[in-house]
Simulated assay, not measured.
Amino acid sequence: MSLLFEEIDSQETPLGVVSLRRRRMPALGDRDIYEVKLGEEFLMSSLFVDAEEALSTLGLAAVQGDRLSVVVGGLGLGYTAVAALKDQRIKELLVVDALDAVIGWHKKELVPLGKVLNADARNRYVHGSFFDLATAPAVGFDPQCPGKKFDAILLDIDHSPSEYLDAANASFYSTEHLSLMAEQIRPGGVFAMWSQNLPDPEFEKLLGSVFERIESHVISFYNPFQNCESTNSVYVCVKGEA
């Protein structure tokens, strides 16, 4: 192990080997950078979290009311979940992840935000496939309360609506399956989703077949590796009241 690099954990999962790494890059200052890889593919870095946090802030800003029940699909390094919990209106937050290893990193506080999530009584981890639970409204996301409805569902799992972490996820991006998920959102509630790409007009059209109002946001952030601005996007969809 180098002082500048450490593999904290590596585990076999149904999707392949998932690993958690920590590194330091002197050019970027005196701080630890955490990374998640699936096989040889980089899934997330703590260097680039602006859009993950914006998923929560933009999504929840579109929700009316108090004592909110919220689902986050995809735990990652915890940035979307922690950003959501900064909204004092949240009564409960369910963070759904298919990889038990990733939940374990947070429970064991191997990642910095694990301590924040574990200390907040509103937070609860759910080990399961977001996509399976999203398309089974009679079961739903809360194992303690089948069929429960939520004020917001915030999704950050696939790279984009057309680039999937697992090919099996592709069927979710259809009017049929988005409608099944929308059954679990209260009238006036919100579905928001992160994408690594700029807004896709075809996906916006698909979202419009299910939700009453759609807004797409472009999130810009500095990329030190390329010495330029990079972009991600966040789709925010509001369910009709009727």
Rank of each mutant, 00 (worst) to 15 (best):
S10Y: 08
S56Y: 05
T135G: 02
A51M: 08
Y125I: 00
L60Q: 04
S171Q: 12
R67E: 15
V139A: 07
V17S: 07
V236K: 02
A51T: 07
Q144S: 09
A242L: 14
E215R: 14
T80W: 02
S162F: 14
E202G: 08
E40Y: 12
A182K: 14
A27M: 11
G208H: 08
Q144W: 03
V126T: 03
A167H: 14
Q184V: 13
S19I: 04
E215V: 11
Y34P: 01
I214D: 01
L133Y: 00
V210T: 05
E183M: 13
K239T: 11
G189K: 07
V116K: 03
L28I: 09
V236H: 03
K37D: 12
L75K: 06
S160N: 11
G39R: 15
L58G: 04
R89V: 02
S2W: 12
D156T: 06
S233L: 10
A62S: 14
A84H: 01
F48Q: 07
L94V: 07
H127R: 15
A136P: 03
W105G: 02
V17F: 07
P201Y: 11
I8H: 10
S216Y: 09
E241C: 12
E229P: 06
E204A: 13
I219C: 05
S216P: 01
I157D: 02
S179E: 01
R21Y: 08
C228S: 15
G65Y: 12
G78Y: 00
A84Y: 01
Q11T: 11
F172M: 08
A98I: 04
L3N: 14
N123L: 06
V71L: 05
S19L: 04
K115D: 03
E52V: 07
F172R: 02
N123V: 01
F131V: 01
D9K: 10
G114S: 06
